[in-house]
Design a protein around this nucleic acid. Structure first.
Length: 634
RNA sequence: GGGCCCGUAGUUCAAUGGAUAGAAUAGAAGUUUCCUAAACUUUUGAUACAAGUUCGAUUCUUGUCGGGCCUACCA
């Protein structure tokens, strides 16, 4: 890996000295180097315990010997050391930090890697066209966009894509409800944003469906199955027979009851009508297609506005209506290769029991492709179009199993795209009251949330009254910057893999571990730089030794390139969020303790100006990778 | 029934097997003649439980308890 951060320099130096002193081969990556804890003297610490055994030395002696050897062989790097228990604490020479500062302070792309010739695709957002975006989509969009930028920063060419789920029973629900209850309503006639309008009819459908389910369910409970479809009758009878033995097991009983309810829902007149509509859509019925196009176009107008607002963009958009038939020919070739097998009824399956999974259907008995087959087909199409080395799917963790199977099938089929499949799985966003449920109307709408954040940013800014000379356009821009910055930072500061709780009260806070805190740090630096230009002359050792807080800021700055590498390797923007917060925090302490403009000497002033400029560059760069803008003033 | 994931201060989050488990917020106490106080400083407070591996465990293993997700010829 091309990471010549100081940590890897130390690792190499230790590895080399161990080799010379003890004739032992130790890879640099095996040397454990940590930041020295603040209560001890030093900058970085080599942890020696692991070496003690193989070298047969006691930790103290080993540390002393190694420390002396390191200093004599690297006099420009190390200025001192101490050994406590098994920890070798190394101090790095001020001149080293000054050299680093001189090289980096004016580098606008500090930390970014040159092109590595690799191409990666990031698929994210992937909305359904039957309702507007919500809080969960925001986490997805922010993560996807950010990971794409992080990969660019690590030298990859990136293609951002989106698969729009524009067909299927869900959109038919909105269409049917609009037909029945819409009276020709349009976004223009109602003044409602297109995606919200369509979503309203989806809700209307669900409400109507709930009402229709009640009598069906009552009839089932009364033992009358005459209204139930043939295919469902058997399942239903089975479930009903399961209920009485489960009286003591509330959770299990609920599960079975839910299954029964689901069957009841599917046997309402409304659901029958919706399925009829889907069949008409698949047959290409002109009226159905026209209505579908009409309503989807409303949704796209709405989505476009939201995407523009939150800063999501795509290089290529796929539509499920164009891709849902893909993958059928793969089934044929899979059968020939013996990867798949056919059951008596004609359905095609793959047997994954050998790797601890189940059998999975890949083609229905009626010959149509299932979801996973379409996904494989799309993966192939993507590869043919872009030949990406990696294909990252930003999809919620409820689909972990799906992607595991997807990759396995692709590998068994020997597809060239197979090994590059990576599921960036993220946890659900929950509310303090629990999970968001669209059927219960507890979903936090994306547009509403953004509006609310921006509104609070405005309120707070007006209250502080620091930018009263801004034009109305500048103010609007600033409110957007702060409001969206707070929201994005809040959703990305957590490890993507983990579930997270969104508390509306706390997430609108602009203090502490938040986006605005970091934006504010940037604005204060810019204020200094407006007052005093940076002198580009070489900093020399005559400035005197570095104060702890000066050194702390430089040390953190130096870590930025390896933080970017780590964030990329882990597909994890929260690494950057945590880092940049720590950077801002440390800088603020420095800012309070030491004056830049009124520094003790002209040399110190120039040193600090460079330090301050480097910090501003890093903050702007890191925040950009999170999709967050930083203001000149706030 | 089977599989996967998660339990850390009141709350929301950190911690490649390494030093006395870090932050933020909430609570308590301070800091504006000085580059923007959306800031800074001090302070109270946590590894669900029980064994095991290890010089050393929040981290690895097993069990218990508590939560989530998957296990559809839905997408």
């Amino acid at each position: 890996m091309v990471n010549m951060g100081v940590v890897s320099v130390i690792q190499s130096a230790v590895s080399e000295q161990i080799g010379q002193l003890f004739k032992v081969d130790l890879a640099p990556s095996e040397v454990l180097v940590n930041e020295t804890k603040p209560e001890f003297e030093g900058d970085y610490t080599v942890v020696l315990f692991a070496l003690v055994k193989s070298l047969k030395k006691n930790p103290e002696a080993l540390g002393k010997e190694l420390g002396e050897q390191l200093i004599t062989s690297n006099p420009t790097l190390f200025s001192g050391f101490n050994v406590i228990k098994g920890f070798l604490n190394l101090s790095l020479a001020d001149s080293f930090w000054l050299r680093f500062l001189q090289q980096s302070y004016n580098d606008p792309i500090f930390g970014r890697q040159p092109s590595n010739g690799q191409r990666v695709m990031v698929e994210y957002s992937s909305p359904n066209t039957n309702k507007p975006l919500h809080l969960g989509h925001l986490r997805n969009n922010f993560l996807g966009w950010s990971v794409a930028e992080i990969f660019k920063a690590n030298g990859y060419e990136v293609i951002k894509t989106c698969i729009v789920n524009d067909r299927g029973v869900h959109i038919c629900k909105s269409m049917l409800a609009w037909e029945k209850f819409g009276h020709g309503a349009t976004p223009e006639s109602t003044g409602i944003k297109g995606d919200h309008l369509v979503g309203d009819y989806y809700v209307k459908f669900e409400n109507e469906l709930r009402a229709q389910t009640i009598p069906v369910l009552e009839k089932i409970r009364a033992g009358d199955l005459s209204d139930i479809d043939q295919d469902d009758k058997q399942k239903l009878t089975l479930f009903i027979s399961k209920v009485p033995p489960l009286q003591d097991n509330a959770a299990k009983k609920q599960e079975v009851e839910d299954e029964i309810k689901e069957i009841a829902r599917n046997n309402t007149p409304l659901m029958r009508e919706v399925r009829q509509m889907l069949i008409k859509w698949e047959q290409g019925d002109p009226a159905t297609i026209a209505l579908w196009k009409q309503m989807n176009s409303w949704v796209y107008q709405g989505f476009d506005a939201t995407y523009r607002r939150i800063g999501s963009d795509f290089d290529k958009i796929y539509y499920e209506s164009n891709t849902y038939l893909l993958g059928k020919n793969l089934v044929e070739s899979g059968l020939k290769k013996g990867v798949f097998f056919q059951k008596e009824d004609g359905s095609v399956w793959i047997d994954l029991t050998a790797v601890g999974l189940d059998q999975k259907i890949v083609r229905r008995k009626d010959g149509t492709a299932v979801y996973i087959t379409q996904d494989i087909g799309l993966a192939v199409q993507k590869y043919e179009e872009y030949k990406c080395d990696q294909s990252i799917y930003v999809v919620g963790d409820e689909q972990n199993y799906h992607f595991k199977v997807l990759k396995l099938i692709a590998q068994k089929l020997g597809l060239p795209a197979a090994d590059g499949i990576y599921h960036l799985s993220y946890g659900m966003v929950e509310l303090p009251s629990g999970k968001m449920k669209s059927r219960e109307g507890t979903v936090v709408d994306a547009d509403d949330l953004v509006d609310e954040m921006v509104r609070i940013a405005q309120e707070k800014t007006v209250e502080l009254g620091k930018v009263q000379d801004f034009t109305p356009e500048e103010l609007k821009d600033l409110y957007d910057t702060i409001g969206l910055g707070a929201l994005k930072f809040f959703l990305m500061r957590v490890d993507p893999k983990k579930r997270m709780v969104f508390n509306p009260e706390e997430s609108i806070d602009f203090h502490g571990f938040t986006g605005p805190f970091i934006q504010y740090t940037h604005a204060r630096i810019k204020s200094i730089l407006r007052k005093e230009p940076v002198d580009h002359q070489q900093v020399t050792d005559t400035v005197g030794s570095l104060f702890p807080l000066e050194k702390a800021v430089i040390t953190l700055s130096e870590q930025y390139p390896s933080i970017l590498a780590q964030a990329g390797a882990e597909h994890n923007p929260s690494v950057i969020a945590n880092y940049i917060f720590r950077m801002a925090q440390t800088f603020n302490s420095f800012y309070t303790e030491h004056s830049v403009v009124n520094a003790e000497s002209p040399e110190k002033k120039q040193l600090r100006l460079k330090l301050v400029q480097l910090t501003a560059n890093i903050i702007a760069s890191a925040m950009h990778l999170l999709g967050i803008r930083v203001p000149e003033r706030m």
